[in-house]
Each structure stands twice: as structure tokens, then as C-alpha cells.
Design a protein around this nucleic acid. Structure first.
Lengths: 217, 217, 217, 217
DNA sequence: AATGAATGAGGCTTCATTCAT
DNA sequence: CATGAATGAAGCCTCATTCAT
């Protein structure tokens, strides 16, 4: 009667993750506040009561998802650090939300996080933290890369990083409000276009704008 | 425009506006969903029932406020058009939210609008509309100004406008998540710093970046 | 349209009291914990929501009823003070719960209060307070009456008062557990019998107990 | 009586009793209704499911504990019968709840039983039964002892027994509401003081009250 | 026009009970 | 025998909305 203890043929369903995933889906779909625990339970194919075996409250679920989101971004930063070039590293941020099917879920969720951070100190702290990690990470990336000196005069890596992050957020908003009907692929294209614009500005090819300058006797 | 402008020299309290203002305050403070009609009524020093005399539902109030917000921005755009220089015109956008006491109210509200636009088609249409007006308006501003030709090679006024708008949104998010504890004045400073950064990039002073090139006569 | 302000033909329904009465009935019937807000609402012919316009929580309703109970007892004590004789004064306590139709409601409620006081500090404080008032009041009553000197040697008015109160409580328990099927009238009889027993002990008529002794050979 | 008394020299943990003890503790701590099956399971270091192997429902657990309580009291009565004197016999009742660590558990539990008996016919029957046993037992004790004739004139052993039981209950209430912060020892003292009071009344030493009479010429 | 009492559906959360392992 | 994951009914409370005054 006991299952064969050998090959773990059926992975034990990770209820916790199952619930978190369902919650993420729901939150992305309807937002924190309008999502009911019943919604989450239904999405997770689970009873409401069970959610409370794993999380003490709805807020705790939100908090956990936010934490997960933070971890995802940290990993993203790590990936970026491995990228061969600065451009590619930053490309990762600009396109990250479009790699998978969660595309239309994560952005709305993040926007909700931002909105929530205006009144919930806990969420605010987390968002702020994520933001700092990002800016710092990108600033380091720029500083470490040879491209730093290509920045316009008086432009620090940090300033550049902040601009990049801000633009990313702005683009995310565009994604949500303008492109929600478009395919993830198109959205991704849009992001890349945004990146290239910014890139051109931040790191003007020497030959393109200024190289001639220095070369002149 | 209001009826009976004659016999009532003292303008009757504009209940409608009173309610809208109160709602704006509440929404900014707590967000759409958590704000109750009672909150709004209290803030407006009015009974709950009265709100329903002017608006058919809570959603209608939200919609109306959003519409108002749109009108405000249109006016802002108009102001910008009157500005003596492009920089000053754009400065208006970057600092608009900090001029008055509503500073800490509008930004959270707008973030809520963005978040809401992810699921509410009506809100989405409005946000999108506002966004287009903005981008178009700024692009025109740039095109009309003599500064357009100072844009980096291959950079259209529209691209610049999009970048400006995105960055503005990104900065607004920073405002809400990072600066909520700071004074509006500091927040405004921050915005201006952001603007100057971007400005330096978009419109490099000839002498600053390229004059040295020597290409100039 | 406004109601005639003259004769108050229709007394404005005192919702608050209406709810309290209903709650009292329900609590007496089923106890605090098993009684639902819906029960109370139904009993009061009112919606659940309305209860929350008058009380912030179920506990607040309980607390208020307890407070009311305390006030009732204070009044009872006052009545007792007016009584022509000590016996009649004390009789009031022993029979108070049987005067009206609430007979079968108050005693269970009080028992619930006692039980609750074992874990709820707030309730405990109230019960304790009531108890002190009682003992003090009765002790005073005894001391003030000429009967005090008839107390057995070494028996203080306070001791007598404590015994009376304890016995009253014990009788109340008997009421609830034994006589719940009997008529209030019988229950009252029972109480009086208890009182007479105790009375005989506390205030033995000199001739009744001791004088006769002398008759013994 | 239990099966397989042979092969298991070490008594298997008596799950049933273990659960009952835990339940008693919990009920005393928080009351019937607020106590959850999980509370009981935790206290018993057992799984919730296991409780249902031994008891069909929460109510059954309560009922069983009540039955146990009844048995305990029966035993107490038996002990009392063995006591050398009436006073000592009755002392047993007054102090019984203070002999062991359950002191602060049993009284609240009994109060809960009383409160519950107001609405639960089953509990009521049990409480009534216990009560009768008690009164009968004590009345017998009094009747059997030589002290019976020392009772005040017209006072039957049964009347005395009832008074004793009532006073005991009243004192128990005082214990719970007033002395919950005191040590069991102090509480016991209190009980004994109560007993002595009552005793003095019920069984006035001849010389104490009446002998003086004899002093009269 | 204005009030605010009243409603009741619905949300979050708890908990007795069941059942697969 | 034992576990504890899982269920779902039900409880407390909130709040958008209505309506008598």
C-alpha cells in the first residue's frame, strides 16, 4: 500500500509553491486587493483552508511573492554579471519579463507592488531594497566594464544606472498600458528599441559622435 | 457655465468637485480599492448618500478623477507649450507634481492608475490616451524648438519624447518608493536632477561634447 | 415631511438597546461563544451589518451587556438599601432573578460570565468588581442593621456577607442545572428556602437557639 | 481488562488517557468552545487524527471528561466517608481542588461545565447527577456522624448539605474570579476559611453558644 | 438637496472532521 | 496504529449601495 519508495515517481506536490504560483497568476490578473483567497484557491486547485496551512494570511502570501520576486531579480542581476558585454548585460534587464509566459503576469504584479509601496511600509522597504540592488548592480557593471569612460562627460556610472532603471520602469508601464493586447514578442521588441535608444545616448560610439574629436591634433 | 449663475452671487458649494477632491485625497492616501465610500464622504464632509447623487458608483468616481487627471495633464501640456525654452517646457513635466500640497497624493494615485490599467480596459484606454498626448506633445515641442537638431544622430523627437516620458514615470516610482519620507522640495530636486541628466544626454551642448571636435568652423 | 415634533407618537426605535436585548437573549440561550452575530441580528430583527454601526465587535457587545448587568446589580443593591429590614433587603438578592421573564436568561448568562472570567482578564475585572460591590454592600447593610449583633460570636458582617453571596451563587448554579425545567416561580421558592436556611444560621433568634437551652435540664 | 495484558510488560502509552488529560488541561486553560482539536492534539503530543480514533467528536471528549470528573468526585466522596470526623470529611471537599497541580485547571473547567449545562441537556443531566450524589453523600455523612444533632433546630442534614455544596460552588467562583493570580496554597487557605465560617454556623459547639446558657442560674 | 440608518453579499479566516498514506 | 494534509462550512466583519425621512 505504501508507494514504491524507490524512484519517487510522483514528485510530492509542492503545495506551497503551487499556491504561490496560483497567487502570482491571480495577482497579475486582478491585482492584490481584488483577488480573493477563493480565487487563489481555485487557481491552485486547492481548498481555501489549505492556503492557511502554508501562509498565515493573505498579506503573508503577498509578502512571500514579493520576496520571491526580489530573489528572481537578484538572480537576474547575477546573470547579467556573467554577460560578455555591458550591452548584453543590460539587455537582460530590458527583456527579462518577456522570456516566458509569465510576461503578462509579472509586469502588472510589479506595478501593483509599486502602487502598494506608496502606503505599505513593508512593501515599500522591499521595493526600495530591490531598487537599490539594481542601481548598485548596474552601476558596478558599468564601472567594471571598459565602457564607463565612454559615458558623456560628467556622467557617473551611477547616474547612468539610475537612468537605465527609470527607463526600464517607464517601459514596463508602457508594456502594461499600451501593449497588453500585443504579443510578448512585440513587447520585447519594444523594450529592445527603448534600450537601443538609451544606449545610443549613454554610450555614443566614439567614432560616431566624439571619436573624431579626440583624434584631432 | 453652471446654471443659475445669476441669483446666487455666492457660488453654491460645488458638491461634485468637493467630492472629487476628497476622493482624490483618499485615493492618493490609501489607494482605490482600500478606500471606502465612507472615507470619501468623511473627507468631503458630506454624507455617503450624497455621493450617489452625483456619481452612480465608486467606479464612476474613479473614472471621473482619472478624467480630471487627464485634463490636468492636458493643461500642463498647454503650459509647457508656452514655455520660453524647450528645457523649461520639459522641466514643467518633471516638477509638476511637486508644486503644491498634492505632491504626495498625485503620484500614488497615478501609480494606482497604472496598476489598475493592467486589468481595467476603461482605465487602460484613458492612461494610454494620456500617454499618447504626452509623447506627441513633447515630440512636437522638441520638433518645434530649435533644439531638435541637437539630438544625437538618428534620434527622432519622438524617441526623445518617449524616453523623457519613460524616465518621468520611472522617477515617479522612485519618488513614491524611495522618497516618501522626504519633503516635496527634496523630491522636486531629485526630479530636476534626473531631468538634467537626461537633458545632458539628449541635447549635448555643442561645445560640451562636439565643439571640441573641431568640426565646427 | 418631518414628523410631528409634538407627541413623539412613534418612539424612535432604540437600535442599540434592541440589539443589546437580543444579544442578552441569545447569550442566555446559547452562551457567548456559540452565539453568532447572525443569531443576534435575527433575534433583533436587524441585519448583521447594523450591529456594527453600534458596536465595534462581538466582544464589545458582550462587554456592554456585562456592563449593563453590573449596573442592574448596582441598582438592586440600592433597592436593597431601601428595604425596611435586613431580611427583606437580602431577600431581594435571592429572588431578583425570578421577578421577570428574564429569569432563564440572566442566570445562564451570569454563569457564562463566571466561566469566561477564568480566561478573560477584562471580564474577570468586571466580575470581581461586581462581587466586591456586593459583598461590601451587604456587609454594610448588616452592620447598619440592628441584626449585626445577633451574628454568632466571632462572625463579622463581612464574613456573613461573603457567605450570603457565595450561597447565592451556589443557588444560582442549582437553578440553572437543576431547575431549568421548572417554572420561575418554583425556582424563586427554592431560592427563598435557601435564604431562610442561611438566615436561621446567621441570625439565630436568641430565644430560638439559646434561650431554650436553658430549658434543658 | 485490557487485551494482551501478557506480552506487553511495559504498559503501552494509554493514548486515550493521554488525550483526555491534554483536553482537560486545554479546557481548563481556554474553555470548551475556544479550545481546538489541534490544541488538544498539541498538548497531548499526538496528531489530530488520532483523537478521532478514540473519540467520535469533540463533544464526546467533553462528555468523557465530564464523566471522568464525575468519577473523581465519587471517589472524593468515598474518601470523605473514610474521614475520622465530619469536619475533616467536609474539609476534603473544600480543599480538594487545591491538592495538586490541576488546581487552576479544574475550577475553570467546572465553571464551564456549569455554564454549558444551561443549554446542553446531556451536560446538565451529568451535572445534576453529580450534584445529587454530593448532596446525598454529605447529608448521609452528617446524619451518620454524631454531629447531626448539633445542627440548629429545624435544620435537616440535607439542608446543611445543600448549604455546604452551594457555598463550595460560590467559593469556587471566587477562586476563579478573584484568586486567579494567587497561589493555589492561598486559594486553599481561603477555602478553609470559608469552611470554618460555615462550620461555626452549622455546628455551633454547645459550649460555645449554648453552654453559657447553662451558666445562667 | 441631504442625511445616515439599514441592508446583505462577500471577503478573510478558523476549525471540526475526514482520509490517503 | 498514527499522521497531518486537505476540506469546506461557518463565523466575524466590511462596505458598496439603497432608501425613508
Amino acid at each position: 500500500m505504501t508507494p514504491t519508495e524507490v524512484s519517487q515517481p510522483i514528485a510530492p506536490p509542492d503545495r506551497r509553491q503551487q499556491i504561490l504560483d496560483a497567487a502570482m497568476t491571480c495577482f497579475g490578473r486582478r491585482g492584490f486587493h481584488p483577488t480573493t483567497m477563493q480565487d487563489v484557491a481555485d487557481e491552485a486547485k486547492v481548498s481555501v483552508g489549505l492556503i492557511y496551512r502554508y501562509f498565515p494570511s493573505k498579506d503573508a502570501v503577498i509578502a512571500e511573492i514579493a520576496r520571491e520576486h526580489k530573489a528572481d531579480l537578484a538572480e537576474l542581476l547575477e546573470q547579467a554579471r556573467q554577460a560578455p558585454s555591458l550591452f548584453e548585460a543590460i539587455e537582460i534587464f530590458f527583456t527579462c519579463h518577456h522570456d516566458d509566459e509569465h510576461a503578462q503576469v509579472i509586469a502588472p504584479f510589479v506595478l501593483d507592488l509599486f502602487a502598494e509601496s506608496a502606503r505599505n511600509a513593508h512593501v515599500r522597504a522591499l521595493v526600495r531594497d530591490v531598487h537599490h540592488c539594481f542601481v548598485d548592480g548596474i552601476a558596478e557593471l558599468i564601472a567594471a566594464s571598459g565602457d564607463a569612460e565612454r559615458l558623456p562627460r560628467g556622467f557617473s556610472p551611477r547616474q547612468a544606472a539610475e537612468l537605465i532603471v527609470d527607463a526600464t520602469h517607464g517601459l514596463m508601464i508602457r508594456d502594461v498600458t499600451e501593449l497588453s493586447d500585443l504579443s510578448p514578442a512585440s513587447a520585447c521588441e519594444r523594450q529592445l528599441a527603448g534600450l537601443r535608444s538609451l544606449w545610443t545616448l549613454l554610450f555614443p560610439a566614439a567614432h560616431d559622435l566624439c571619436v573624431p574629436t579626440g583624434e584631432q591634433p
